[in-house]
Design a protein around this nucleic acid. Structure first.
Lengths: 130, 130
DNA sequence: AGTCAAGTTAACGTAAACGTAAGCTTGGCT
DNA sequence: AGCCAAGCTTACGTTTACGTTAACTTGACT
């Protein structure tokens, strides 16, 4: 079972981003692909990393934040200090996420309202009521 | 019942942002306060606007997007074209929000895991098991 | 042998969202 | 009268996350 590898182009296309972005993430030490000569070679684990990066971005994390999260996750959390730091970080993030959660629900409700009003009016127009 | 007014400083402090930000939002036409002389005067409606702006930001909207959302909301939606545009926009946004929603839930679960593992280890350490 | 797509580095450009002086005005104390 | 905090405008600086050439290499076809 030889491990499946990917080129930077394949990876970019499969995630809907540009090679430039992937190289930039590497510059920020979020990805550390192997090299065959000077060409980058990616494995499944890199895909996972990239998926996490993009999810983090969608949630409004900066690349720097994602980086520190990776570090905390990578360095096996053995020292008590590390663990405390980690707990503190997760607590903060959880608060932000819960805030976003609420924001999203409010907004969804408002969108529901707007949408149904729009559709009503459209129907009115179509029936020549306007 | 005279309407309550606010200075830019008061507004800034009550929202935990800087006056600079508020002036910037005005530059982007997100706020249009009245003036007493050359000094800005804000009312309750401006507070509402500002609250919406900040909520939008927390959700990852750009100021430009928030601006167009305001415009769509302000211009009473009477033309069919406007309504279609609005529906399209809300549909897109809803998709993004649902994506974020899922992302957040996944992340929360992972945080749960990490957190409980951390706490376990901490207890181990405290009991001298490590 | 030629070329062509896809890779590489290096370096400069850009948009968004403010931060940060600099220099001016002003209403309110004391 | 003098001062000070708070407001104002103008303008340049800054960070983040890439976009965009430019100029070069390289393996794969034909």
């Amino acid at each position: 079972m030889s491990l499946q590898t990917f080129s930077i182009g394949e990876l970019a296309k499969s995630f809907g981003i540009t090679p430039r972005s992937i190289r930039f993430y590497e510059e920020q030490h979020l990805l550390v692909p192997e090299r065959k000569g000077q060409t980058r070679v990616y494995y499944g684990k890199d895909k996972v990393r990239l998926k996490l990066i993009l999810r983090g971005k969608r949630l409004g994390f900066s690349l720097a934040e994602i980086s520190t999260l990776f570090e905390l996750y990578d360095t096996n959390p053995n020292s008590a200090a590390q663990l405390e730091t980690m707990l503190q970080l997760t607590k903060t993030k959880r608060a932000v996420l819960e805030q976003q959660f609420n924001d999203i629900q409010m907004l969804m409700n408002e969108l529901d309202d707007v949408e149904s009003r729009c559709e009503e009016e459209l129907n009115d127009i179509k029936r020549g009521v306007a």
